[in-house]
Amino acid sequence: MDLENQKRVKDIVEKHGEENVIVLLGAAEAEASGLAAETVTNGDPTFAGPLAGVQLGLRVYHVVEEQFKGEVDADTYEDQIGMMEMVLDVDEIVSEMTEIRNEFCKFND
């Protein structure tokens, strides 16, 4: 995750509290999704940005995961994300995201 976005996540969490923030990802593949998810839960794995060593443990989901998809209007989802859902390796992304959440997310919901 680039340094500017790390700073934005950090600022938002400071303002609203960890329990009130959800991070949504739209990365194109599993590895990049996992790295971004790790950054907002366990801290920046590259130790380069403002979240280096900062364990926010936030709720983090990819937009192709059921937890997000089930919450939004189906037509809008189809309109905005349906095409990418066809292209992305959804199973791999879900597995990567689940793994990171199970290991580092502070919230068990």
Binding site: A28, E29, E31, M83, M84, M86, V87
Partner: peptide, 20 residues
């Protein structure tokens, strides 16, 4: 560098648009 195969991703998206 972890940025994938850019043309291939584009072609997949064009194809998915074709499916839609």
């Amino acid at each position: 560098a972890g940025a994938g195969d850019v043309p291939e991703s584009n072609y997949k998206m064009i194809a998915a648009l074709g499916v839609k």
